[in-house]
Design a protein around this nucleic acid. Structure first.
Lengths: 196, 196
DNA sequence: CCTACCGATCGGTAGG
DNA sequence: CCTACCGATCGGTAGG
């Protein structure tokens, strides 16, 4: 992993990417214009191109930042000596935390990746497919060890990951419940649905 | 409810809306152009405007078709004399079936509604909020009657509806499992997660 | 980092 | 339903 980025060593490019994530989340990738982004950053549109190559570069930076974090945590979880159910809980907590604390980037990666173009598009889809297979393998293992109900592992992964992406709706109405409570509620329902 | 539409009494406008749903699902509302849509329909772009007022009309027709079906089924379910858990199962089966059999429109309504403009936008958001509150009320009722675990009803609704929207991924890889099996698996996990 | 500007494409209209 | 066309806006470049 690279250097840790504090506020003081964020490059101008990092700032642009971060503001782009917010803009893409609000408007969608296609509807967001480079002129709007320039306004937010505080420069003229042409000046953005001294720091980035294209609009699409912003999107693939965002998507692969997120995808790489996911594959990294999966490496860690797979290596741990804990039960399948505990592994799943750990992954879910990671996803929930990602949605709560890195909302803009995770959301964009999840909803706007289809606007990537090749080779990034194929690459992203591959990483995604691989991640889900690894997740499903953990569930399958849990079923074999009788920790988990007999269900279709692929469907279970699909349900859990999408359920978490629903935290988007929670983000729009921050009042009712805090992040920690949300996390505990989600874990109760999702992990509860798997247990024998 | 209006007349039942068979293939033979679909108007030209209905055909355009249906093809638009497919196009918007594939490309996203903003990225889809009226020239592409015209190509698919088999006319010149200008000719579309003899049947529709604008691109945005297509979007709100799609979104409100779906939203109205949801509120209609909710009316029915609320009126039935069955347990809360059975009501929830019924609603979930309706949603799952909608995703499987009316995929294009449901998907567009779910992911592209933010491109609606007022008054349609506010209207849609209101309908959505109301629907979720009614759903949460059923869950709350189930908790009170001790049919359902003590969880946050709002979070539970959020999880279940988004989990179902994940059927999108299933649509992309039709091989493995059929629609009925998918439905049973989802019900097992989701309803299982609620039971005491 | 800015001014000035380009070609492409967009949703939509006029007129027949 | 088509031809012809409009003004607006887009991502991006040249040149300083």
């Amino acid at each position: 992993m690279g250097r840790i980025k504090t506020d003081s060593n964020l490059t101008r490019k990092d700032v642009i990417i971060s503001k782009a994530a917010t803009l893409f989340r609000e408007k969608g990738y296609k509807a967001a214009s480079m002129r709007e982004l320039a306004d937010i950053v505080g420069v003229e549109a042409a000046s953005l191109y001294n720091h980035i190559k294209s609009k699409s570069e912003l999107l693939h930076e965002i998507c692969f930042n997120v995808a790489n974090r996911f594959s990294h945590i999966m490496d860690e979880v797979e290596a741990e000596k804990i039960s399948s159910l505990e592994k799943i809980e750990k992954l879910l907590r990671f996803h929930i935390n990602g949605m709560v604390h890195h909302f803009e980037e995770v959301y964009v990666s999840d909803r706007e990746w289809k606007y990537l173009s090749d080779p990034y598009l194929s690459n992203f889809q591959n990483q995604r497919r691989t991640y889900r297979k690894r997740f499903a393998a953990i569930i399958e293992d849990g079923i074999r060890k009788k920790e988990i109900k007999k269900i279709d592992p692929t469907t279970a992964v699909l349900i859990m990951l999408h359920a978490i992406s629903g935290i988007e709706s929670w983000h729009r109405s921050k009042q009712k419940i805090n992040g920690d409570e949300l996390e505990e509620n989600m874990i109760t329902i999702l992990v509860g649905g798997l247990k024998k």
